[in-house]
Amino acid sequence: MEFLIDRLPLYLGGAWVTVQLTVGGIALAFVLAMFFGVLGTARSGLLRAVSTVYVEVFRGIAALVLMFWMAYALPLLTGFQLDGRFAAILAVGLNVGAYGAEVVRGAINAVPRAQTEATIALDMSWAQRMRLVILPQAWAQMLPTFGNLSIELMKATAVAFLIGVADITAVAEQMRQATGETVLAFSGALILYFLIAQVLIFGVRLLERRANRRLGRTPPGGRGLLALLRPPALTTSGGAK
C-alpha cells in the first residue's frame, strides 16, 4: 500500500491524462455519433450511404490500428505530426463514434411513426421535428448504450501508451520497470481505471434518470439515490465495442 501511496502523484498525473483522453474522445464520439446517426435516418439514399460508409469503416478498423496510422503514417503523408494525445483522441473518438451512430440511428427509428405524423399535422419542419420531438424522445433510449460505449472508450484510451502518451498505463509500466513490483504497479492502474469507470456509470445514470423523468417514466431500478449505485445492465446487442 505504501508503495502506491508514495507514488500517488505519478499515478494521478497519469489518471489526469487518461481523463483528458476519455473526455476528449467522448466529446468527439458524441458529435460524430449524432451527426452520422441522424444522417442515417435521412430520406435521401446518398446521405444514408455516407453514414453507412463512416460507420462500417471506422467500426471495422481496430482503434489501435487507426491510432498507429494517425501517429506514424499521417505525418509521412502530410508532413504534419499529430500530438500523441490528439492522435489517441481521434482514434478512439472515430471508432466509438461509429458505434454510437448506429445507436442514434436505431433510437431515432424506434420513436413511433405516430409522433412524426403529429409533427406533420402541426406543420413542423424537419429540423424542428428532430430537435423538439424526435431526439428528446430517442435520447432516453440512447443513454444506456452510450454509458457502455463511454466505458469502452475509456478502456480503449489505454492504447495511447503504445505511442508514448503518459497515461495511467504508461505510469504503471514505468513503475514496474523501475521497481520490479509488477503486481502493485498494475493493480494501482487497474483500480484507477475502475474508479473512472464508476464515475462514468454514475454520471450516465444521472442523465438517464433525468431523461426518463422528462418522459414521465419512473427510472428503471427505482427511485432514490441508491438505485444509482446498482451495477449497470449490459445491453447485449449493438453495444459491443
Binding site: 478502456k155 509488477t182 481505471y193 469507470a197
Partner: peptide, 23 residues
Amino acid sequence: VHAVMEFIRTTPLLVQLVFVFAL
C-alpha cells in the same frame, strides 16, 4: 464472481495483458 467480472469488464484489456504477461 459477478463483482470480479465487472472489474475485468471495466478495466482495459491492454493493462490486463501486460500485467498477466509480466507475471
